[in-house]
Amino acid sequence: MSKELKFSVSSVSESSAKTKVQTRGFDLIVDEPEALGGTNEAPNPVEYVLAGYAGCINVVAHIVAEEFKIRLENFKVDIDGYLNPNRLFGKSLKDRAGYKNIDVRLHTTSNIDPELKKKWLAEINHRCPVNDNLTNTTPISFSIN
């Protein structure tokens, strides 16, 4: 498959902290916790980043496991992201606005040979599109009507 895939979202602001997003016929709500000015009705943007990352790792882990003949059982992905909100709120430019670091932990009850596990993890890391976007610079263009 060499054809590029295009993914798109369209969003409408419902408040200063809440956004309604549509993609492929799905409606998503993005909101902030009350402590950050939202109504806590849905995950916030940085939580969706981690959720997307976990979903991507899940897909790639299963693809690679099948290729490597690993019978994947009870697979689980836990991710923690750490960010300093000072830049977001205009208090300091010391730290970046995004995640300073992200910890990914994969869990499975499968008994995988240590060398094969190492190769499997490296391949997941190498092939996950969200991992690629989080670890490499992606050109982004902004425009306004």
Rank of each mutant, 00 (worst) to 15 (best):
A42S: 12
S143Y: 12
N40K: 09
T108Q: 09
V130G: 00
K3A: 14
S16P: 02
K94Y: 12
D103E: 11
N86F: 13
A61F: 03
F68T: 04
P45R: 07
K69I: 06
L121S: 01
S16G: 15
S10T: 13
E14F: 08
I102P: 03
V9H: 00
F142M: 13
C128K: 00
F26N: 04
N131I: 04
K3N: 12
V21Y: 01
G38V: 05
F26L: 07
T137M: 11
D103C: 06
N84R: 05
P139D: 10
L116M: 12
N74R: 10
N111F: 11
F68P: 04
V59T: 11
A61I: 00
G38Q: 06
D31S: 06
N133M: 15
H107Y: 13
N44L: 04
D80K: 14
A122K: 12
G38K: 11
V104G: 00
A122Y: 00
S110I: 05
T135W: 05
A97V: 14
K20A: 13
I144C: 09
G52R: 02
Y48H: 08
R71H: 13
E67I: 03
S16L: 13
P139A: 10
E4Y: 06
L134Q: 01
E4P: 11
Q22T: 14
H126E: 15
E66D: 15
G37N: 08
N136M: 03
S15Y: 08
A35C: 01
T137F: 11
A65T: 03
E66K: 15
L50T: 02
P85I: 12
E73T: 09
K6D: 03
E34W: 02
F142D: 06
D31R: 07
P129H: 02
G81D: 03
V9C: 03
Y99N: 03
N125C: 04
N111Q: 14
F75N: 02
